[in-house]
């Protein structure tokens, strides 16, 4: 049986780890290589690096960061943020990423997902979806760090993304990101019942109880950031807490 994955996420800006609330008010949270190796030692099952640099110069650091992190990491590494073209993905894979996440570019040009799946395989192709609650019912895909609402229905979009070749979904609740108020469980349930590929739940984790809820609602993996960066808990502690509640994890 596959064990659910606990995945620390490093948001990177200009080569440094940062953390904010709803992608705003960014604070410096350290060196990516150091942070990634600490989380690996704590028992992380995978590391996600999302580059949120606003400029092309800043994004240039992503390839360099990937390459440096790869040297110390013996667990899978997923890299995303600012990926526009097949060539961007090729560069990140060559630098040492195992999977690459695409977000805005896939919404603007969905065929990108088919091109990536054909060239690198679905197991390399992750679609990152930022979901914002609608005023009445359901969720809408937002892009450009939440600044642009697309009008796209989240369930419809993930369904097409998988049909095009995405092998995994990194699902972020834009409303919960950095708030520590728990994952959006209805969102997780809606997306995991719409697709059969693994879904990584993201946005809102504050405790092992939140992780366990997300897994019970169908997530295959949980992304964690704020609580780790602030040093309030460790991956090892979270795993121990999950084990005591009967939730199997990789020891």
């Amino acid at each position: 049986m596959l064990a659910p994955r606990l995945i620390p996420c490093l948001d990177i800006k200009d080569g440094r780890v940062v953390k904010g609330v709803r992608f705003q008010n960014l604070r410096d949270a350290g060196d990516p290589v150091y942070q990634a190796s600490i989380y690996q030692d704590q028992g992380a099952d995978e590391i996600v690096i999302l580059d949120i640099s606003a400029t092309p110069e800043g994004r240039g650091h992503a390839v360099e960061t990937t390459s440096k992190v790869r040297q110390v990491l013996s667990i899978p590494l997923t890299v995303g943020g600012g990926v526009r073209e097949v060539d961007d993905v090729a560069m990140l894979l060559e630098a040492g990423a195992d999977k690459v996440a695409v977000n805005t570019a896939a919404v603007e040009r969905p065929e990108l997902l088919s091109e990536l799946a054909a060239q690198f395989g679905s197991q390399c192709t992750v679609v990152a979806v930022d979901a914002a609650e609608r005023a009445r019912v359901g969720w809408e895909v937002v892009v450009n760090g939440g600044r642009t609402r697309t009008g796209l229905d989240v369930e419809g979009w993930v369904d097409s993304a998988v049909a095009l070749g995405a092998g995994e979904i990194l699902l972020t609740s834009w409303d919960r990101d950095g708030t520590r108020s728990g994952y959006d469980l209805d969102l997780i349930a809606a997306v995991t019942s719409a697709v059969s590929v693994p879904v990584i739940a993201s946005g809102g984790a504050d405790s092992s109880r939140h992780l366990s809820e997300a897994l019970r609602h169908g997530a295959s993996a949980v992304l964690i950031a704020s609580i780790l960066h602030d040093g309030e808990t460790t991956v090892a502690t979270l795993k121990r807490e999950l084990l005591t509640t009967g939730q199997e994890v990789r020891p």
Partner: peptide, 25 residues
């Protein structure tokens, strides 16, 4: 679920030389 993405348990036969039990990605 396909692809199988994640950590799963490996159980070698008794006569394996390299392989040992454990979790693999």
């Amino acid at each position: 679920s396909v692809p199988q993405l994640g950590w799963n348990q490996v159980e070698p036969g008794p006569d394996c030389r390299f392989l040992e039990p454990g979790w693999a990605y």
